[in-house]
Design a protein around this nucleic acid. Structure first.
Length: 566
RNA sequence: CGGGGCGUAGCGCAGUCCGGUUAGCGCGCAGCGUUCGGGACGCUGAGGUCGGAGGUUCAAAUCCUCUCGCCCCGACCA
């Protein structure tokens, strides 16, 4: 491709819309353009990268035994009502009316459509297992798109679904996919971390995410510095410190005027925060829930939501709290009636806590569980943080931001039950098909690659997904010898099967080099009067500082070898 | 949905508080010339419904009301 003909220009200035590295660089490189919030066009260079990623994914899916098919974006809402997932997606579903005023949804994912298809075409255990996938556009009306391509409302995703006769079969499919995903990230040169994940209200037992550690990641990964334990923060558990040993003391009221927060209370009473009890109120599907946790810990809402199995969970509003008869800041689990109490298990591992007195400006000392109060549920609902102890080995846990670049789920039979996807087993009994699903967002993977591979000059594409492999860069176009050699090299490199971006523009060396760096083409080949003096051309990897000279006559063979060796 | 910010040429911005020539500057773009190994320079030129609608006024980018869009933080995000 001749750069002079390429659609899309580089931009020197940073677009004001963007503040993550990948967003800025992809815009400046002329690879993408925003159309609406969370909606982007791919320009030729960006689209080439996306295609490369797509091909890698397709090859790995096929290698793993996947069969590609295509399903519609447009889906009848009734299908979603059958599984109840119109509710769980809620406002995230894009819906529209057709001319007959029937509601259609723009597919955010395709379990429903495919499960229905499978239910029609699979009757026997002999028809299973199946691994079916597509690479196609999804629509999700995210509350807040952000970070350029990292979180968008319309995106291309590879989604594969597995259908098996039993749990063992599911396990085999799952492992195949995990391995296929590892191959994909290896080929894209991205060090993805395999972590335990929250499977959400609808998923089955097991779910894992592939995370790329990145400054701009919106997920939080917890991992151990001395063993392999790695998990999404929403799934993380840690070993909680035990408090004590002390003897339980009798209850005692204390005046605590104006002390509403744990911080103030602990200071005022001159005791550590882990000797206080924190009360947090949530509305779970409209019901007020009283969550208790040791004062030095915080509640993880995803864990709480999973525990309560509710679809909506938010901090209760002041109105909701007072309607339940609770005095915020001084609330106590003692003597509360008619409100569900969920206690983090940290309250059972401590002693002589200070808790609210259920009236303004009063707290109660030496509260002990279960002597002084009961809870409806005792479970781990604590947010794990940096420095906590690893549940596997006792080591120190670290917290890092990450980008979710792949997610695999064991779905089980929820959807096959709802949609009647059954098969007849060897004994002639009808059983639901056991499902799994496996997704990778291509655009997000592309953005993640830029987040991982860039410097202050621009993108540094891994060779496997670079839009072009070679940036051919002649300097000083008035020199006919330079032009001639460059033109010939361009043809020869292409004939050798290399993908070449030929900077045939009449620009100064500075402009060309800077554009080459911004675009991030892996290998730069410079031809100039200076190199030709000794019959050389210059090669330089984008990722490296030093350049090398190679003889002009050996250049094509040498460049081919360099690219192949990577 | 709550909080904050922004909308003026393809891009980055000034001008808005305190209304008043022909709405500026830089980059980019076009032409000519000089340059040429890390975003060169000179001259000339094109390019604007000042997000939109309504209002106040002799006069609105600027003041008022409504509205649309975008970004960030939070909520949210099988």
């Amino acid at each position: 491709m001749r750069l002079s003909q390429l659609f899309g220009k580089t931009q020197r200035e940073i677009p004001s819309e963007a503040d993550t590295a990948s967003h800025q660089l992809l815009l400046r490189a002329g690879m993408i353009m925003q159309v609406a919030a969370g909606v982007y066009s791919y320009m030729p260079l960006g689209w080439r990268v996306l295609k490369k990623i797509e091909n890698i994914i397709r090859e790995e899916m096929d290698n793993a035994g996947g069969q590609e098919l295509a399903m519609p974006v447009l889906q009848p809402v009734e299908l979603w009502q059958q599984t109840g997932r119109d509710q769980s997606f809620g406002k995230g579903l894009f819906t529209l009316l057709d001319r007959r005023e029937r509601t259609l949804v723009l597919g955010p994912t395709h379990e429903e459509v495919l499960t229905q298809m499978v239910s029609h075409h699979v009757q026997s255990y002999r028809d299973l297992p199946q691994l079916l996938y597509q690479i196609q556009t999804k629509f999700r009306d995210e509350p807040r798109p952000r970070g350029g391509l990292i979180r968008v409302r319309e995106f291309i995703m590879k989604d594969l679904y597995s259908f098996d006769v039993d749990e063992d079969g599911l396990e085999v499919s799952y492992q195949k996919m995990v391995q296929a995903y590892r191959n994909i990230y290896d080929r894209c040169a991205l060090p993805a971390l395999f972590v335990e994940a929250d499977s959400g209200a609808i998923g089955g037992k097991d779910s894992h995410e592939f995370m790329l550690i990145a400054e701009n990641g919106e997920d939080e990964v917890i991992c151990c510095d001395s063993c392999q334990y790695a998990t999404n923060v929403d799934k993380a558990v840690s070993v909680k410190r035990q408090i004590g040993p002390e003897k339980p003391l009798p209850l005692e009221e204390v005046a605590t005027p104006g002390m509403k927060t744990i911080e103030e209370l602990a200071n005022f009473l001159n005791m550590p925060k882990d000797h206080t009890l924190k009360a947090v109120f949530y509305a779970a599907d409209g019901q007020v829930v009283f969550a208790m946790i040791r004062g030095d810990l915080d509640v993880n809402e995803v864990k709480l939501q999973r525990l309560l199995k509710c679809t909506d969970l938010h901090l209760a509003t002041e109105a909701e709290v007072s309607a339940a008869g609770i005095s915020a800041g001084y609330a106590s689990p003692m003597g509360l009636k008619g409100i569900k109490i969920v206690a983090d298990d940290s309250v059972t591992g401590g002693i002589n806590f200070v808790a609210g007195g259920n009236k303004p400006d009063i707290h109660i000392k030496n509260v002990n569980y279960p002597r002084d109060f009961k809870a409806d549920i005792v479970a781990d609902i604590a947010r794990v943080g940096e420095g906590d102890a690893c549940p596997k080995c006792g080591g120190m846990l670290k917290s890092m931001p990450g980008i979710e670049i792949g997610h695999v789920f064991k779905l089980g039979t929820f959807l096959s039950n709802a949609l009647g996807a059954n098969f007849i087993d060897e004994k002639g009994d009808s059983r639901p098909i056991i499902m799994g699903c496996y997704g990778i967002g291509l655009g997000r993977l592309l953005a993640a690659a830029v987040e991982h591979y860039h410097d202050d000059k621009g993108i540094i594409w891994p060779l496997s997904i670079a839009p072009y492999q070679v940036y051919l860069c002649p300097l000083y176009r008035e020199d006919t010898n330079v032009v001639e050699v460059a033109e010939r090299l361009y043809r020869e490199l292409q004939s050798a099967g290399l993908e070449v971006l030929f900077d045939d523009r009449e620009e100064s060396p500075g402009v060309k080099f800077n554009d080459a760096d911004l675009l991030g083409i892996p290998l730069r080949v410079t031809v100039s009067p200076r190199t030709l003096q000794n019959n050389n051309v210059e090669t330089k990897w984008r990722a490296e500082k030093e350049s090398q000279l190679v003889l002009r006559d050996e250049a094509v063979a040498k460049i081919k070898e360099l690219v192949k060796a990577k």
